[in-house]
Every structure is written in C-alpha cells, then in structure tokens.
C-alpha cells in the first residue's frame, strides 16, 4: 500500500500530463496527403442503407488511396449528430462525411445550424427515389386504383415511413400536391423507419408506405409488398416494371441521396485526390453489382455538379417543409 501523499503525487503527475496535452497539442499536424488512415463518418447506424453504401465504397477507396479507410457510425438525431461531427472536424481530408438528404432538411427544422455550405462536396454517389408501396393483399393493383380511392375517401387511408416532417413525409406531401390533393387526403402516421412502417402495413395498421423502393426490396421479392410507382425521373434498374409518377402524369420526384463531403475549407488538392478515388470506386464492377443487387440506385455527380445539386435540394426541401409547417 502506498501512503496518501504518494497517491496524491501520482494524481498530480497525471493531471499535469492532461494539462500539458491541452496546451501543446491543440490539433493534429500533417504531411503529404494521404499518409495516415482516413475516417468516414456515417450519420446513421451500422447495417442501415447508408452504412452499407459507405462500407462498400470505403473498401474500394482503400485500394485506391493506399491508406486504411475506416467507417465510423455516428448515428442519432435523424442524422444531425453525424453531420455536425463531420462538418466540425478538422478540414484536412482525414475525416470524410457521408452526407445524406437529411443535410438539406435538418437545419430547416432547427435541429442544427449545419447546412450544405459547411461542407465541400467530393461527389454524390447514390440516389434512391421515394416510392408508393402498398400491401400485396390490398385491393390496389395500380397507382390509378389507389389515387381514385384516396380521392373518393379523403382521410380514410393512412401512410407512414418515417417520423413527421422527415424525408418520406415530405415525399408524400409533394406527391399529393402534384396530384391536386391535399395533405389531409392521406394523413401521416409517424414511425421510426422503413422496418416499422412496412410491418404496420403488412399488419393492416397503415395502407401506404412512401419509403425508397430499395428499403422494401426484400418484401417486394417475398411477395408481401406491391410497389405501385417510384418518385424518380427514371425507372429504377432493379425494378424495371414499376412506373414513375411522371409517366402517370404527376410531375413530382424526390428521393434520398448520399454522397461524400469534407468540411468547408479543405485544401482543393485534397478534394481533387478524394474525388478521383471516389469516382473510380463508383465506376467499379463491385460497386455497380452491389448497388443493383440490393436495389440501390447509382448516381455519380462530381464535386462541381454536386455543389449545385446540394443547393437545389436545399431549396426544394425548404419550400416544402415551410408549407408543411415543420420548418422553424
């Protein structure tokens, strides 16, 4: 046993080290890029769609960049936590964020101050349109069947897919508006996500689910869910039989998207290096096969186009969310 005096001395030394580290190492130093492992922040949990896309690309980028690329999940707050962590990281290219559609929504809801201007986009890698899905045992065979029924019985049927004011809720409102209906024709039941919403629909608790078609892929293949339409500009490769809303005369498209970005202020040459690596990864056979097999849509927008895309998305979301009354 040591005396109290000795123990206190140990404590004092430990505290000194803590203090010194505060003073001497405010941030990490660096050399030629990249010379150490890169971290990708995924603002959603392990195993979800965003996580899967990030992990596939991370393994491909690793070969391209020659340094380890690690995926780190910072889930929570509907993406706010991860996006904030990513935007406030050191702008040195060693912390990349997988940005998602939520980036264009959260700041309107007042959840965070972070918006697209806090990031320098590397590129957009994926786009999944929203869809209109119903239970396979429901009477609606086509989108027209469903729309007529909704028109004839406003407020009788219910839709779900996410929490109130989140992306699939916005998709529903945009769809109804474009078809000349109102929010109240097909009210929203908030749920925690695709799994819960689809389970509710199978069990008869809700009637329509507006999540991306990839989230329902397993159940569509199992014959328990029927997709009636997708809210994209073109049909989805994995489901070529499902028409778009535009084909049906409803001018509306919305989807969730994913991309990579670094904090604003990252050196341009670092962004160029990353852009080239991501571009190669996105074009690889492994990526294309994976995305098609799982039902994700591929969209590649390089840095410049991505910047413009982000601004457009931000505006669309802002307009709709203000109209829905969910924006602050």
């Amino acid at each position: 046993m040591l005396s109290t005096g000795k123990r206190l001395r140990g404590l004092a030394i430990v505290s000194m080290i803590a203090l010194l580290s505060l003073v001497l190492f405010p941030a990490a130093a660096q050399a030629a890029y990249p010379d150490r492992p890169i971290t990708i922040i995924v603002p959603f949990g392990a195993g979800g769609g965003t996580d899967q896309v990030a992990r596939v690309l991370a393994s491909l980028m690793q070969d391209e960049l020659g340094v380890p690329v690690n995926v780190v999940n910072r889930a929570g707050g509907g993406g706010a936590v991860g996006h904030t962590a990513g935007a406030t990281a050191a702008p040195d290219g060693y912390t990349i964020t997988m940005i998602t559609a939520e980036l264009a929504m959260m700041h309107w809801m007042g959840l965070t101050n972070i918006d697209y201007t806090d990031f320098e986009p590397i590129g957009i890698v994926n786009m999944d349109p929203a869809s209109v899905m119903v239970a396979a045992n429901s009477p609606w065979q086509t989108l027209e069947d469903l729309m007529e029924d909704i028109k004839a019985n406003p407020g009788k049927y219910r839709a779900s897919g996410t929490g109130t004011g989140a992306i699939w809720d916005v998709a529903r409102v945009g769809w109804l508006n474009a078809a000349g209906l109102t929010d109240g024709h097909l009210p929203w039941i908030p749920s925690t996500g695709a799994a819960q919403a689809l389970q509710e629909m199978i069990a008869g608790g809700v009637h329509v689910v507006t999540n991306s078609i990839s989230e329902g892929a397993a159940m569509i293949h199992a014959g328990t869910v029927r997709p009636l339409a997708v809210m994209g500009d073109e049909r989805v490769v994995a489901f070529p039989d499902v028409p778009t809303l535009k084909e049906k005369g409803i001018d509306w498209s919305l989807g969730t998207w994913r991309g990579f970005a670094v904090p604003a202020g990252t050196p341009a040459d670092v962004v160029k290096t990353l852009e080239a690596a991501v571009a190669k990864a996105v074009a690889s056979d492994q990526y294309v096969t994976f995305m098609n097999d799982v039902g994700f849509g591929i969209l590649w927008l390089p840095s410049d186009e991505a910047r413009q895309f982000l601004a457009e998305q931000d505006e669309i979301m802002g307009t709709l969310m203000k109209q829905m009354g969910v924006a602050k």
């Binding site: 949990g45 397993a218 159940m219 199992a222 328990t224 097999d293 799982v294 039902g295």
Partner: peptide, 27 residues
Amino acid sequence: VFGIPGDSITAILLGVLMMKGIRPGPG
C-alpha cells in the same frame, strides 16, 4: 417468410441474402 427483419441483425442479413441470390418469401 416475409422479408421483414426480426431484429437489427437480420435487417443487415436480408441485404446480404439478396446479394447472394437468396430471395426470402413464403415459397
């Protein structure tokens, strides 16, 4: 049976199964 994940493990698993050409369903 239905392609509905029973928990967070099977949620990830379903994606992997489809990638491997295993199509869940009553059949």
